[in-house]
Amino acid sequence: MADMTIAGEFFRGIVKDNPVFALVLGLCPTLAVTTSVENAIGMAGATLFVLVGSNVMVSALRKQIPPITRIPMFIIIICTFVTIIDMAMEAYTPPLYEALGIFIPLIVVNCIIIGRAEAYANRNTIKFSVVDALGIGAGFFVALVAIGAIRELLGTGEIVLFGLKLISIPIEPATFMILPGGAFMTIGVLMAMVNYNKIRKARKGA
């Protein structure tokens, strides 16, 4: 693995290995908290913190963790960081904590994090593990904010970010987009677009 570059590893997480659209991991928080851009940013931030923390720890301890007990070890490491962010958010950002609710403790069972620990951090140096965590975290961030922006814009007619109105369009708000059905539809449409793009590229290459 001599040809790994830091930039390459970082952008791989956003485009080629995008956790939501390419790997289809971590669907539950992706759909549940994207009723607004603000919630999406909060969730992606919390996940990024846990991802970086667990990747660093797993990578640092990868020679000490016996292979047979690695999964429970990973879960305990991840759980430690989840508890940290859970308590920090409860103390410093109570409204966001209320809005995200049960999905903050549920970061523990987010397949993205344990997947990266198992597939990447367990085999690579700390430096590249951090870059990988940042890249995957950024990919998750992009996906969440995209879904959140679409749902908030169509569902309420405007995007409000930390009290600032970013954009508003003169439409009748479609409450459907805020309801769970809207989440499934948005991700379905986005995935179909990603697939379409992939198929077109493959045809061009062939």
Binding site: F176, L179, P180, G181, G182, F184, M185, G188, A192, N195
Partner: peptide, 23 residues
């Protein structure tokens, strides 16, 4: 269905309808 919708997107569209019924 169109090639791009096959698989997961299709599953999500079915889920959309189911979810609307439940809500």
């Amino acid at each position: 269905v169109p090639e791009a919708v096959e698989g997961l997107p299709h599953a999500f569209f079915i889920t959309t309808l189911l979810s609307m019924a439940f809500v």
